[in-house]
C-alpha cells in the first residue's frame, strides 16, 4: 500500500473508532435513557431493553478503543460492521412498522434523529468498517 493510502486508512480507522467511543460513552452515562430508546423499537421486553442498554454501549466502547489504538483492528472492524448492518435492518423495520422514534444512536434524550438519517449515517459507517476490515493486516 502506498503511504498516502496507508495514512488515509489509518485516519479512517481512528475516525470510526472515535465515533464508536463517543457513542458508547454517551450511552454508558445514561443507561436508563438508552434503555428507553431501545424499548421504543418494540422488539425487546422491559428487562431485555435494560440488559441490551447495559451491554451494547460497552461493545461500542471497546470496539472504538481497539480501532483508535490499532489493536485487533480486523475483529473490531468486523464487529462494528455487523452491528451497523443490524442497526440498519432494525431502522428499516421501524419505517415499515410506522414507528416515529428517535434512533437513540448518540445523545440520549436529545434532538430526534429520524430513521432515514440514521440509516444513511449507519450505511456510511458500515462502508468505512468494511473498508478498514479489508485493509487491515491479518
Amino acid at each position: 500500500m502506498d503511504p498516502l493510502k496507508k495514512h488515509l486508512t489509518a485516519l479512517l480507522r481512528v475516525g470510526l473508532g472515535a465515533v464508536f467511543l463517543y457513542a458508547g460513552i454517551l450511552k454508558i452515562a445514561n443507561p436508563a435513557a438508552f434503555a428507553g430508546n431501545v424499548a421504543n423499537y418494540q422488539v425487546l421486553s422491559y428487562a431485555g431493553s435494560y440488559l441490551v442498554a447495559a451491554i451494547l454501549p460497552w461493545i461500542e466502547l471497546i470496539c472504538g478503543a481497539l480501532l483508535v489504538t490499532g489493536l485487533r483492528t480486523r475483529s473490531a472492524a468486523a464487529l462494528v460492521a455487523i452491528m451497523n448492518a443490524f442497526f440498519i435492518v432494525l431502522l428499516f423495520s421501524t419505517v415499515a412498522r410506522g414507528l416515529d422514534i428517535d434512533c437513540g444512536c448518540f445523545k440520549q434524550g436529545g434532538e430526534k434523529t429520524t430513521a432515514w438519517t440514521a440509516i444513511f449515517r449507519d450505511t456510511m459507517l458500515l462502508v468505512a468498517a468494511v473498508f478498514i476490515y479489508r485493509k487491515a493486516p491479518k
Binding site: I28, P31, A32, Y50, A53, A54, I55, L56, P57, W58, I59, L61, I62, C63, L66, R72, R74, S75, A76, A78, L79, I82
Partner: peptide, 23 residues
C-alpha cells in the same frame, strides 16, 4: 476472527453487567 469478536462481546457483557448491576 470469530473467537476475538466473541471475546470482545464477552468482556463487554461482563463489564456492562458489573457496571450496571444495581440498575
Amino acid at each position: 476472527l470469530a473467537a476475538e469478536m466473541a471475546a470482545i462481546c464477552l468482556i463487554a457483557a461482563v463489564i456492562g453487567v458489573a457496571w450496571n448491576h444495581r440498575l
